Amino acid sequence: MRIQDLVRSEVQTLEPYRAEEDRCKVKLDANENSFPFPLELRKKMVALIENLSFNRYPDPSAGELRAVLAGQLSRQGAPVEPEMILVGNGSDELIQILLMVFGGAPGRVLMPTPTFAMYKVLAQILGQKPVEIPLEGDFDLDLERMLDKIYSDRPSLTFLSYPNNPTGNSFSREKILKILEASPGIVVVDEAYFDFSKKTFLPLLPRYENLVILRTLSKIGAAGLRVGILISNREVVRQLHKVRLPFNLNLFSQAAAKLILENREAIDGQVAQLLREREKLYQVLRELPYVEPFPSEANFILVRTKIDAVFLHEELIKRDILVRNLSRPGPLFNCLRMGVGTPEENEMLCNALKDIRCP
């Protein structure tokens, strides 16, 4: 017997998702919030732990967390009720649930490229057929080709990262609206970087029954909690609950996420500082002769290098700085993604880039 012969054909061709594992002092590869968790929140978190019953299963519906989320989301342009919210073990789980419920056998899943890798990976794992449409030269959606595929392939789901990871830009709102109107299936607008762009389709939920919005706490300082948030109409969420695993969000993550949301001031202060640092970093990168930074509405900046990206990536690691090497044939050739860090981390990055001697 060969174990490989027992593996589904869709899985045999896949490679495991690999995060960068280099232990560098400055870690700017994963689009996290580099600032330490605020001290006042840390103290409240310690007190919170003392009152949690770890011997009991968590609330299966995360009712208290969803109630807090509903109250805050309702202030962003449209009324949101707790029954319109599903929380998960990171957005990855919510993407997986969406594909399990709405993905056909085999269904077509439409997405631009380049974009967040897990849309394609999870579609393949679940036996769906990813349909990828290259972005235009300015990294906006190729609307004509997207609509052609919608009419010909009738995708069961369409994924749009807004702002897009790894390019950092927000797609044209008008193009997304046309995709929403033309799509026979679910359209997922992934607003993981909403806190940095302040752009959202949330007010349009009452108008489009096929609209699903994703949010997360991972980009604003709680990546370790793995809290993903899905917002849609009641019927979509009701169907998703059918395949959601019981107790999918653990006790501590539920309580900690609720605490963070109820004490947003400290986190919002860090987000504001990251926005200022993003602009400063972008301006410094523009002045370097061998890199071309792209404007960003997220917490990272995509950079195209005029030298070998592998060489530059390795030189930064030698200087204890880790960024994400995205270089591959196509629009991301010789591209690196650099997270926006603390002022000290950004200064180290800029000094290192100025110090590196091109081959």
Rank of each mutant, 00 (worst) to 15 (best):
S91T: 14
D92Y: 08
E93K: 07
E93C: 00
E93D: 03
E93I: 01
L94S: 08
I95H: 13
I97N: 11
L98F: 09
L98W: 09
L99H: 11
L99M: 12
M100G: 12
M100I: 05
M100H: 13
V101I: 13
F102M: 11
F102R: 12
G103Q: 10
R108W: 13
R108L: 12
V109D: 06
V109W: 05
L110Y: 05
M111D: 07
M111V: 08
P112S: 09
T113N: 11
P114H: 10
P114Y: 10
T115A: 12
F116L: 15
F116Q: 14
M118K: 15
M118D: 14
M118E: 14
Y119F: 14
Y119A: 07
Y119Q: 07
Y119T: 06
K120P: 00
K120N: 11
V121E: 14
V121H: 15
V121W: 14
V121Q: 15
L122N: 12
L122S: 10
A123F: 04
A123Y: 04
Q124C: 05
I125G: 00
I125H: 06
I125P: 00
I125D: 00
L126F: 06
L126S: 01
L126Y: 08
G127Y: 03
G127M: 03
G127S: 04
G127I: 03
Q128H: 11
Q128S: 08
Q128C: 14
V131P: 01
E132F: 00
I133S: 01
I133F: 00
E136F: 00
E136Q: 04
G137P: 00
G137W: 01
G137M: 01
F139G: 02
D140G: 04
D140M: 04
D142M: 05
L143M: 06
L143N: 08
L143P: 10
R145D: 11
M146P: 02
D148G: 00
D148R: 10
Y151M: 03
P155G: 02
P155R: 02
S156G: 02
F159S: 03
L160S: 04
S161G: 12
P163L: 02
P163Q: 04
P163M: 02
N164W: 05
N164Q: 06
P166A: 04
T167D: 07
G168P: 05
N169V: 15
S170T: 14
S170C: 15
F171A: 08
F171S: 08
F171C: 06
E174K: 10
E174H: 04
L177M: 10
